[in-house]
């Protein structure tokens, strides 16, 4: 059952990632990213990282993707063609950087492959004892990692103020 789920969600992540790569419509690519991120979240669950999976779902699927789609909608120049009202709204990718894209992808793949092959997994062959990590995380967060936790709060505050300031004051006409 777990293996079926693993291969199913891996297939979901890989197929939607390939779809992002192959589609020319930017909006479809964003929706494909949604499926890929959900697949990766499920893989986190199967690897025993439940908190990471929840974070992935809440922040990436729920938040970053909305920002991405808003970003697409914000940066669109108005369609000036005379038949703009009747033509379909496809947001197409017009320019390709095939050489550099493939180069970066191959190099990144090589780095990941090397990391996996060179890594010495101590837990390999062990049975995964799947217990929820959230209680441990909560106790650690409130005791030994209290200062980093509050500093994270200040970091979030700085990010909030900075992001809101930059987004609003770049565009005086808004």
């Amino acid at each position: 059952m777990e293996q079926v789920a693993f291969y199913g969600f891996s297939a979901l992540a890989i197929i939607s990632a390939l779809f992002i790569l192959l589609t020319r419509n930017l909006m479809y690519a964003a929706f494909g990213l949604f499926l890929a991120l959900v697949g990766v979240a499920a893989l986190y669950v199967l690897a025993g990282a439940d908190f990471l999976a929840i974070t992935q779902l809440l922040v990436y699927v729920g938040g970053i993707l909305v920002l991405l789609i808003f970003g697409i909608m914000l940066t669109r120049p108005a369609d000036e063609r005379p038949d703009a009202a009747t033509r379909p709204n496809r947001i197409e990718v017009v320019n390709h950087r095939r050489f550099w894209g493939i180069l970066v992808a191959v190099v990144l793949f090589g780095v990941f492959l090397y990391t996996i092959l060179a890594a010495n997994f101590t837990l390999i062959g062990d049975v995964l004892i799947s217990r929820s990590t959230i209680r441990t995380l909560g106790v650690e967060l409130m005791t030994s990692h209290l200062l980093p936790f509050e500093i994270a709060g200040i970091l979030l505050l700085v990010a909030l103020i900075g992001a809101a300031y930059l987004a609003m004051n770049r565009n005086p006409s808004a």
Binding site: G63, V66, L67, F70, G71, M73, L74, T75, R76, P77, A78, D79, A84, A85, R87, N89, I91, L160, A163, A164, A167, M168, N171, A174
Partner: peptide
């Protein structure tokens, strides 16, 4: 056309 540039305020609300 529905494909118009959005108001940046939507983006700020999404950021927050």
């Amino acid at each position: 056309n529905a494909n118009v540039q959005f108001n940046v305020r939507f983006y700020v609300v999404a950021l927050i």
